[in-house]
Write a protein that binds this DNA or RNA. Structure first.
Lengths: 168, 168
DNA sequence: TCGGAATAGTTCATTTGTGTACTATTCCGA
DNA sequence: TCGGAATAGTACACAAATGAACTATTCCGA
């Protein structure tokens, strides 16, 4: 079926060779990486016609989702699952193109607030139909109950992953 | 709780602003990306002491899991969820360091077979305890039933993601 | 069986992403 | 209230990843 079957076999074999290597979590982690990669590639393909990539999209969407008030670079980093340095780089590009703006936070002058310009909002609304239909295709694989289950389990996994990283 | 809550709010708001943007799949995709990133970062941190990164690890483990017979570069590409060009690059490094070897496939001379050297196997067995314990920490978040559920749902999502990409 | 199409892998220029060091600002305990 | 620790963001050199073009080989239908 899926190309993943071969991977599953290799994981099983590794577990046989080295028994403390746990089959189940290894599977989960590989699955997540594979899905993430396919989603990334597909999104890149769709977004290319707008001169954007998946990372740009993730950033723009988070800004769109917080409306006028804007958000800080750190919030953007967490929301887009990128490193600060990369967020800075992407923001430079998006600002240069006139889709977003930076301004100092009067409350805390270490912070930089970012938000979409009207041009940025227009851009988002231009690609949103394509991207929504793409997302709907993923969603079509599950009924409501499965979606909820998957979401719950993934949230838990994310929580654990965050904690493990923090404690390291 | 998790830093993800803010993202969830933004997704909800976006759905309100633009109703065809589907909340659930957007959540799933964002969760997967966030988990993938945290796993990647954590693995990089652990593997650094061995002079490796997460991609190297993914490649080495797939080779370890197919024992002596070896595998082709394309199989490795699918197994590691990387692009061919990147697999070539990583293999160059791992070959240079003496951990894996390339040889022509006598059956089909377009193909290149790759496999671990004895030094490569020794390296894998050196980092495997740390990495196994890391994986076990992820696994500890779920009971057997939940693990099985999550695995099933993720396999389905992967299948869909592969298909959507193929059809694009 | 010939020749165009498909497949496997690499090369290379470019884009994307990261670690680290640094500046500026704020926090907070003595 | 002073000063060291923590936090926010950026700069920059370097590492990792990608798209596209290319070579070699195999496939397969006329």
């Amino acid at each position: 079926m899926s190309r993943f079957d071969a991977t599953e076999n290799r994981i099983n074999l590794t577990h046989q060779r080295f028994s403390s290597y746990p089959r189940e979590p290894a599977m989960l982690v590989r699955l997540v990486k594979a899905i993430s990669q396919h989603v990334h590639d597909t999104a890149n393909l769709v977004l290319r016609q707008y001169g954007l990539n998946h990372t740009d999209y993730n950033v723009l969407m988070m800004l769109y989702g917080c409306q006028q008030e804007g958000m800080t670079v750190t919030q953007l980093r967490d929301a887009a699952a990128e490193k600060s340095a990369n967020v800075t780089r992407v923001c430079n590009i998006l600002c240069d193109r006139g889709w977003m703006a930076r301004y100092a936070d009067p409350q805390d002058r270490r912070r930089v607030l970012v938000s979409l310009t009207p041009e940025g909002e227009a851009l988002v609304e231009q690609f949103l139909p394509s991207m929504s239909s793409l997302l709907n295709q993923y969603g079509a694989a599950f009924d409501a109950r499965e979606t909820a289950q998957l979401e719950t389990l993934l949230k838990r996994l994310l929580g654990v992953a965050e904690q493990i990283e923090r404690e390291l």
